[in-house]
Amino acid sequence: MSKLIFITGGVRSGKSAFAEDYAKELYQKFERKNLYYIASGVAFDREMTERIKRHQADRKKAAIQWKTIEIQDEVVFSEVIYPANSVILWECITTWLSNVLYKTEQLDSIERIIEIEKYIKTLKKQLLQWTKDGAIVILVSNEIFDEQSSTYSEVNYYRSLLGILHQWIVHHSDEAYEMDYSKIKRWK
């Protein structure tokens, strides 16, 4: 049994709560041994530190214990994950991709594009491998595609990378959800 689940929505749409509840539900339903939380948020200011703390506190309060793994950019794991007995929640793809963009900032444009593509390829490979090996994977991301294109090329580049990545994820997903104001719309 494996599953790839994609959840996206606007800011404060309730997607984290939904994703975490759903992960716990699947963890119990399929009698998995591990519940992983892959965190990609980087605390670059006080507000972000508070945000991360709030998310951590929420998970600590939970009856089921999460194992948190931090993945900022490199898709490399410090501990062995056994996909077949795990539920893996990754929050979120949006921050992971922006970390990758920051990380590669100093490179020349062509070199940078190649490097970024490499990161994305590694991510895709990892996701496919997990689902092949029986993992239940839930990916959370953001909706940032319904406003005017930016005057900054970096922002537009980021948006197009993320949009294309979302298309890929949705294509490979077993379930895909869009959240708006806590209302859940199932697309797939």
């Binding site: 909706e143 595609f145 319904d146 294109s149 948006r159 197009s160 993320l162 949009g163 294309i164 979302h166 298309q167």
Partner: peptide, 10 residues
Amino acid sequence: IGGANNGKRK
């Protein structure tokens, strides 16, 4: 109709 980079033309 749809947001940018959602695969409309595709």
